[in-house]
Design a protein around this nucleic acid. Structure first.
Lengths: 145, 145
DNA sequence: ATACCTGCAAATTATTTGCAATATA
DNA sequence: TATATTGCAAATAATTTGCAGGTAT
């Protein structure tokens, strides 16, 4: 049976949350969005942020990315693309686009299921953290393990 | 300065948790491990399960895998390999092994950071869920969106 | 004997949800 | 006016942690 599609009302909160996210390349968490937006909308609530992030995700305007860290991050670039995550500082950087079917083929998806998306996240230590670590070592000598 | 390495004591809990995980190919969550282990060790506590999973992960005997679902899953296969996750039933299946450097190269890691690991997860609907969905459709006619 | 580990319960963290009030269509 | 959306606070879910007692070395 036809589900009566609920009509979407405009909301300034939703607009601004999307506006904040779009264009940036640093994949903020819900909390980060909240803290920033609070400056412009002082009585914004965290629940509203979560609700709108989910709404925007469901309507295909945002993508949620799960990293080995706890909190989810949000990305306005919706084409399927890879990420690099620094294990030290947690930064998430964009890499190239991905063809999910191709990834499935490359890594041996054998069954006849439907492929919708491929999550490719390269983990490591970013250049900056690596440098910081090195200069740290030269100063304090060797650490044991 | 040399950190006095703490010596590891044997514990039956740790042994059995690892024993339970190793060999299986369905990637249980901490809760699932707990529920099962409880049968053999009736006064096992969930905290102990978490502590040991983390211990085993840190000592390189288990790998933790983050899927789009909430709870973390644990995998005794530690070589870097890809997974297929069904968005419907949540099942996680093993795919082929991965060379993290190769993935980095393939998707354009440009900076000189260190590459440690690559997370490749193909998302989709598995064969079983697809069939269930289809037989459902033939019975109940079309759904609108 | 010492230090690691456990069970238990309370604490944290991330996210979701019920509800009355408010804004949009 | 009807209903989507909000703010607030309470509720969940997943995981972590402090502590007192138990266990391995």
């Amino acid at each position: 049976m036809i589900m009566n599609a609920k009509k979407v009302h405009y909301s300034r909160q939703r607009e601004q949350i999307y506006g904040y996210l779009s264009g940036r390349d640093d994949h903020p968490t819900a909390e980060q969005v909240y803290i920033y937006m609070k400056k412009e909308l002082p009585n914004l609530s965290l629940g509203t942020v979560y609700r709108n992030l989910k709404f925007l995700e469901d309507s295909g305007k945002l993508r949620r990315i799960s990293t080995p860290q706890t909190a989810e991050r949000y990305d306005w670039r919706c084409e399927n693309h890879a990420h690099f995550v620094c294990r030290q500082c947690g930064r998430v950087m964009d890499l190239q686009n991905i063809n999910p079917e191709a990834v499935g083929a490359a890594y041996g998806v054998t069954e006849k299921g439907r492929i919708l998306f491929a999550n490719v996240t390269v983990e490591g230590i970013c250049e900056d953290c690596l440098e910081a670590e090195e200069s740290n070592h030269t100063m304090t000598a060797h650490e044991a393990e």
